[in-house]
């Protein structure tokens, strides 16, 4: 069953089906939220729980023209922003250096940037220095493997802007890396 089919059943009153949605998305959202908020594990788990609760409360508002994953990522993104505002902390991205997944994604980003060997070490720190709009697209494209269409739905920006922001993000990253090496 697709996510959208499960959501339709939940909307019709089969609330126990929502458990499948939680199972499918719990791990992904924990990783995504952990990267976004960079706080203790309990805070991350609490925030992800809020995301699932908010998704359930607003499930009748889910537009079936969208992908469910884009919709729930949008909720997670908004919850993270609310969290920053509440705690009055800067929007930070955490890179888990011991995480194997990071290493695979890092290689992909390095290939795309075609950067020198000595710059690769500094990549993690440089991503954190990016403008918020650029950081979001880099995270969603390279680390969450979202397409342009999905990123457009998650961030509620025109699809064209996703491409432009990604291009600018890569340019800015490369500039930061080169200036840092010097």
């Amino acid at each position: 069953m697709t996510d959208e089919e499960i959501v339709r059943l939940v909307q019709l009153g089969e609330k126990e089906k929502y458990g499948e949605i939680v199972e499918r998305y719990e791990r992904q959202l924990l990783i995504y939220v952990r990267r976004l908020i960079n706080q203790r594990e309990e805070e991350v788990e609490d925030l992800v729980q809020d995301v699932f609760i908010s998704a359930y409360v607003n499930i009748q508002g889910f537009d079936h023209k969208l992908k469910f994953s884009s919709w729930i990522y949008r909720i997670a993104h908004n919850k993270a922003i609310d969290y920053f505002k509440k705690k009055r902390i800067k929007n930070m991205v955490v890179i888990d250096e011991d995480n194997e997944e990071w290493l695979v994604k890092e290689e992909k980003l390095q290939e795309v940037l075609a950067i020198e060997e000595e710059s690769r070490e500094k990549l993690k720190g440089m991503i954190e220095k990016l403008n918020v709009a650029y950081k979001d697209v880099i995270m969603l494209y390279f680390f969450e493997n979202k397409s342009y269409e999905e990123i457009s739905d998650i961030l509620k920006i025109p699809t064209g802007n996703v491409g432009v922001n990604l291009m600018r993000a890569k340019k800015q990253l490369k500039k930061l890396l080169i200036s840092n090496v010097k």
Binding site: Q11, V57, N58, G61
Partner: peptide, 9 residues
């Protein structure tokens, strides 16, 4: 926790 009704949306 309850769903918001469809009519609200």
């Amino acid at each position: 926790v309850k769903m918001k009704p469809r009519w609200q949306f």
